[in-house]
Design a binder for these strands. Structure first.
Length: 475
RNA sequence: UCCUCCUUAGCUCAGUUGGUUAGAGCACAUGACUGUUAAUCAUGGGGUCCCCCGUUCAAGUCGGGGAGGGGGAGCCA
């Protein structure tokens, strides 16, 4: 029976027989195999005798997959406490070193590893990133489960495109070269698979609201698709989003939930993936050394995570934010490229100033002008602002966007009409306001942005196994 | 989509004012050594200088166009 390398290294027990299986990370001196099975960051050292069959020894190459039977012994060398003294080495999968594109000793760049995303799991960095990603996903379910939330699976194919969260990917079985047409030349979707035009979802929020109007506390966690031509280190065409929706919560409850949630999952990763996070922390520190002094971050990764877990997020209104910006040295020295005045949407440079320069911690901004926010957000009594909230994180920008929803039918209908959203098509959404409406609130959190924040990686393409971006759907 | 930078060996990169046969480290192969930790030592093979067009006696190097990638911006999560 196979023993995981993690268990052998953790227990530090010696003098017992094991079978280990994994991939060769290095083979030194024709004797010492560093074998890694992904169960943890570290590889284990397996020692083979000098009398080992030469045909086997020749096949112990970087990347090869081995099964080793042997005995766990206290190590004679200095680099490790225990090692496996091999009795039998079986080559499960050979790996031709001349063709294997992953050469760990060369410290391949992240850009290069993206081109071989099918093999990059075999590096320490991506091993750590994807173990952390898993832990965060698990922690998310645990957080909500422990609080009595119901995990609601909202549809991936949807006919609704009303939220206007972005360009959508069309889902169709009509022939692309010659689709059936209406008399006016437009495509006749009544002949399509669903008998209407359908798209991949941009958000599960509206459906989550329907669930919350009976189950009270629900959340979604699933893939989301945006066909925007966004080429940045923070955007994907296919990404995972977490969207809790809670009946009877107001905007303050919503902020509390979001803050507790973020702190919980970060703490969970720190408690359960310390080795991975310490490696990523060191990796980031080395990367920072390449940068000029003034661009380096003040805190290391572990420090930053500790800080976020142990300090309250700053809570300010949009109006406060504008005033802080107008008062800032940066504004007075005309450092901002974009205009600052009440009513603008905060630009990246403004968000970064607030989070990284002024408060130096995560910031929750509430009470945005209604004109720059979505139709479903609840109108405040001033008639100018809505009960929206964005959480801005250092280095990432917007990580959470949420709001208390407009539960008043007349107000909601008026907003939809103002924003030219077809109320007839959205009858099912408006029904929740007709039949037993209640105050409720929720938010959306981009999972990859959370993984970015926790892992200290800087490009979103490096925290999802197979990134989907404009002009790139390899693998 | 816009701005900007980059593209030279399998990888990471150097390549001077345009001028012989384009280099290094690592990787890889062969051999030596054998308690190594990115093992070490010796030897060796390996190039569409991203693509196209142009300037020139001569282009990796200069100019124009294209493709791909990075960083920044917009849109957003």
């Amino acid at each position: 029976m196979r023993t995981k390398i993690k268990d052998i290294l953790l227990s530090e027990k010696t003098d017992y027989a094991v079978n280990i299986k994994g991939w060769v990370r290095s083979f030194r001196n024709n004797q010492f195999i560093a074998l890694n099975d992904g169960s943890c960051m570290a590889s284990i050292q397996a020692v083979i005798g000098l009398d080992t069959d030469e045909a086997i020894v020749k096949k112990i190459t970087n990347g090869a997959c081995l099964s080793i039977d042997g005995v766990v012994k206290a190590s004679l060398g200095k680099g490790q406490k225990v090692e496996v003294v091999a009795e039998k080495v079986t080559i499960l999968g050979e790996c031709d070193p001349e063709q294997f594109p992953l050469q760990l000793k060369n410290r391949p760049s992240l850009e290069y590893l993206r081109e071989i995303a099918h093999l990059r799991f075999r590096t320490n960095t991506f091993g750590a990133v994807f173990r952390v990603r898993h832990t965060l996903a698990y922690a998310i379910h645990k957080f909500f489960n422990d609080r009595g939330f119901v995990y609601l699976h909202t549809p991936i194919i949807t006919a609704s495109d009303a939220e206007g969260a972005g360009e959508m990917f069309r889902v169709s079985t009509l022939p692309a070269d010659n689709p059936p047409k209406n008399e006016d030349g437009s495509i006749n979707y009544t002949e399509d698979f669903f008998g209407r035009c359908t798209n991949l979802t941009v958000s599960g929020q509206l459906e989550a609201e329907l669930g919350a109007m009976a189950l009270s506390d629900v959340y979604t966690f699933g893939p989301t698709f945006r066909a925007e031509n966004s080429n940045t280190a923070r955007h994907l065409a296919e990404f995972w989003m977490i969207e809790p929706e809670v009946a009877f919560n107001d905007i303050v409850d919503n902020m509390n939930l979001a803050e507790d949630f973020i702190k919980y999952v970060i703490k969970y990763a720190m408690d359960n993936n310390r080795e991975d996070l310490e490696f990523l922390s060191q990796r980031l520190a080395e990367e920072e050394k390449q940068k000029p002094m003034n661009e380096r971050s003040e805190m290391g990764l572990m420090e930053k995570l500790e800080f976020v877990v142990n300090n309250s997020f700053e809570r300010i209104t949009y109006t406060d934010a504008i005033n802080i910006l107008l008062d800032s040295p940066a504004y007075k020295k005309k450092k901002f490229q974009y205009e600052v005045k009440w009513g603008i949407d905060l630009q990246s440079e403004h968000e970064r100033y607030l989070v990284e320069k002024h408060f130096k911690k995560p910031v929750i901004v509430t009470g945005y002008p209604k004109d720059i926010k979505a139709f479903y957000m609840r109108m405040n009594d001033d008639g100018k602002t809505v009960a929206a909230m964005d959480i801005l994180a250092p280095g990432i920008g917007e990580i959470v966007g949420g709001s208390q929803r407009e539960e008043r039918l007349d107000m909601l209908t008026r907003r939809m009409e103002e924003m030219h959203i077809p109320t007839e098509e959205m009858y099912w959404y408006l029904d929740t306001r007709r039949f037993g409406a209640c105050p409720h609130a929720g938010f959306g959190l981009g999972f990859e942005r959370l993984v970015l924040f926790v892992s200290g990686m800087t490009n979103i393409r490096d925290v999802i196994p197979f990134p989907r971006t404009p002009k790139n759907a390899e693998f």
